[in-house]
Structure formats: structure tokens, C-alpha cells
């Protein structure tokens, strides 16, 4: 490979790792807002656990991204000292928690995607990604189980819980399509055997979603509107609020430690 081609491949790899790290970081941060507010104390602990799973994944990924970049930025620099126009997460994970039904459905959609993505990523030719995937796939499998069961319980529960879940589905469904989109950076990484092709993961994801929604008494909505842009830093207005809360302390007191 020529120097220019290598540089391009490196840039695509950094892009890929940052995207994965940002997905985990933003979802983990938003999910953590349930801590002390969940419907029961057991759920409070469960959601905090899941939030910490995601933030743990984000730390590994952003640490790796910083090393690949080689400009001396560590995981904290990437998490706390970038602005919205540099974040590369999908729009789904920055959608607000809303009510418990919306949080569970968002978690289910993302976790089901992440479980299959990390599952395939274990075969990556990049050893660091492959080992991060091996740790993360188990965590996401549990999130799928937990959130999936809540989706069924709520959909198949009371009139109110069904109504809330149906509203969440209406709201969140459009944002699921971005999970399966690919651009030039993805294609380069797929060709290099670094990441799986998300398009091949879609049929199994669709099937898993259909199964759970059917048990919840809901149908998959029409694929009319397919918003995208998070992966190239065109975000919804919600990301700014998440970052403001997440970043304000380290920006106010840059040298602060526990």
C-alpha cells in the first residue's frame, strides 16, 4: 500500500472506532439519567449497570481511537473536549429517555444491533477491536434480554403501558435505519476485513425485532422517514444537552480529580 492509501485506511479506522465509541458513550450517558429515578430499586440498579457497561465499552473504544490518532488525546479528551460537530454517534442513541417504555425500546433496538455487530466484530482482523467485541457482545446480549422482556411486558401489559410503547415505537422507529447505513469509511473497513457489513446483519435484526414486537402486540411501522446524519456529525438538537451535562464539570475544572 502507498503512503496515501495507508493514511486513508488509518483515517477510516479512526472514524470507525470513534463512531462505535460515541454510540456507547452517548447512550450510556443518557441512560444513566435513570439512576435514582427508575420505577423500582431493582430497575434502578439494572439500568445503572447497563449504563456502566456502555461507558466501559466507550472508554476502551475511545482510548483506542486516541492511540490510533496519535495526537496525545486520551479517552477523557475525546469524551469531554469535543463538541457536537465532532461526535459521530447515530441519532438513535441521542434520543431522550422519555418515559420508561421509550427507554426500553431504544435500548432494545440498539442492543440487538450491537449484539450482532460485536458478535461479528470478534472476527475482525484488528485485534484490539476483536477483543473489545468479545467483552462487549456478552454485555449487549444481556441488554437485549432485559430490554426485550420489558418491551413485551409493556406492550402486553396495561392499556396505558401499551399506549406508551406504541407511541415510543412511532417516535423511534425512523432512527433505526441509520444503524444499517454504510458510507465510504465503512466500505473501506469492510473490504479490509476490519468490520462486518451491517447490511448483512439487517435480516436477523428485523426478525428479532418482529418477534419481540409481535409478542408485545405491535407491528413494525412503515419505513417512510429515515433520518440519518449522526455518523457525519449532523445531530438532532438533543445531543447538545447531553454534552452540556456530561462535559460541564471537566470543562469548568479541567484538572479536577476524585
Amino acid at each position: 500500500m502507498g503512503a496515501a492509501a495507508t493514511e486513508k485506511a488509518d483515517a477510516a479506522l479512526i472514524e470507525t472506532v470513534v463512531r462505535l465509541g460515541d454510540n456507547a458513550l452517548i447512550l450510556g450517558q443518557e441512560l444513566s439519567k435513570w439512576t435514582s429515578n427508575a420505577p423500582t430499586v431493582e430497575l434502578d440498579i439494572a439500568l445503572a449497570n447497563q449504563s456502566l457497561d456502555l461507558i466501559g465499552q466507550a472508554r476502551l473504544l475511545l482510548d483506542y481511537a486516541g492511540k490510533l490518532e496519535g495526537k496525545g488525546r486520551d479517552e477523557d479528551a475525546l469524551a469531554f473536549h469535543r463538541d457536537a460537530w465532532d461526535f459521530r454517534n447515530v441519532l438513535l442513541v441521542e434520543q431522550p429517555n422519555g418515559d420508561f417504555a421509550k427507554t426500553m425500546l431504544r435500548q432494545f433496538f440498539y442492543a440487538l444491533w450491537a449484539e450482532s455487530f460485536y458478535g461479528a466484530l470478534q472476527e475482525s482482523r484488528d485485534e484490539t477491536l476483536s477483543s473489545i467485541a468479545g467483552k462487549s457482545v456478552k454485555e449487549m446480549a444481556y441488554h437485549v434480554r432485559h430490554a426485550g422482556e420489558w418491551v413485551v411486558r409493556l406492550g402486553d401489559g396495561t392499556e396505558e403501558s401499551h399506549r406508551r410503547l406504541a407511541a415510543a415505537l412511532e417516535e423511534l422507529w425512523p432512527y433505526t435505519h441509520e444503524l444499517f447505513m454504510t458510507d465510504a469509511a465503512d466500505k473501506a473497513m469492510i473490504a479490509a476485513g476490519i468490520i462486518p457489513d451491517v447490511r448483512t446483519l439487517r435480516p436477523a435484526w428485523d426478525e428479532g425485532v418482529a418477534e419481540v414486537l409481535a409478542a408485545a402486540g405491535l407491528a413494525i411501522p412503515e419505513n417512510s422517514w429515515q433520518p440519518e446524519g449522526g455518523r457525519r456529525s449532523v445531530h438532532t438538537e438533543h445531543l447538545g444537552y447531553i454534552l452540556a451535562e456530561m462535559q460541564h464539570l471537566p470543562r469548568m475544572y479541567p484538572e479536577a480529580t476524585w
Binding site: 423500582t40 431493582e42 430497575l43 440498579i45 439494572a46 449497570n49 434480554r145 432485559h146 422482556e149 411486558r153
Partner: peptide, 20 residues
């Protein structure tokens, strides 16, 4: 001990509360 709607939820709650 903990509260749960059914046994399956009890297993998951127990996993989160007691085996972290």
C-alpha cells in the same frame, strides 16, 4: 430478597442486585 412480577424477572433482578 427482592420484589419481581414473576420468576424470570426475579432472576434478572437478582443478577443485577446481587451478582454485580
Amino acid at each position: 430478597s427482592l420484589h419481581a412480577a414473576d420468576a424470570r424477572m426475579a432472576i434478572e433482578n437478582a443478577r443485577d442486585v446481587y451478582t454485580r
